[in-house]
Amino acid sequence: MSLDASQFVFLVTALVIVVSALFVVTARNLVHAALWLIATFAGMAVIFVLLNAGFLALVQVVVYIGAISILIIFAIMLTRRVMQDTGPQTNANWYWGAVVAVGVLVAALTMLQLPNALTLGASSLVPGFSSAPLPQPAEFADAAAFNTATLANLGLALSSPDHYLLPLLLVGALLAVAMVGSINIARDDKERE
């Protein structure tokens, strides 16, 4: 089995993701754990690029590295009085967590093996989407043209009532509710007038 360049990059990235994810759960300094989490996110972005999903890679960087990780760092600084807290990260029940994690992995792998169960093929479980044939990479001159076409398709699918308009509006409602709820929880009682 010979390795081409993209497979090599994938292997290195996968290694980085696994190792940094391990450090996230074992690092004794909480801020260091957050930084390892950022490394994991960056590795995910590289995986998206390898899958010809450049837009998702950028979303991963903007939302997860640019926003979520900063939120996490803030949360650490707000909840712990001292940032050099070096207590152990695991508790007595860690092996239950490991069992659940392995179970989820096995379940996900099994589902990927099921023919057409969750794929967007002809027998799609997602209603409406089967009517629009997905563009195939072979139809385009190169990967860049394919990426551009799929991005426009995504925009059309998001705004078309037959496809994902209702989920989009629901996402909007979810975000608004999340904002309202989190503000109510996060604010101090004495700040309220």
Binding site: F55, G155, A178
Partner: peptide, 27 residues
């Protein structure tokens, strides 16, 4: 606390705006 609240609002907006980019291309 204020820093955290501003970041929360920012995250919500960030996630929302990302949906608009593919839509803008297909506009």
């Amino acid at each position: 606390m204020q820093y955290y609240i501003f970041t929360l609002v920012f995250v919500v907006f960030d996630v929302g705006m990302v949906f608009l980019f593919p839509f803008a291309i297909a506009y």
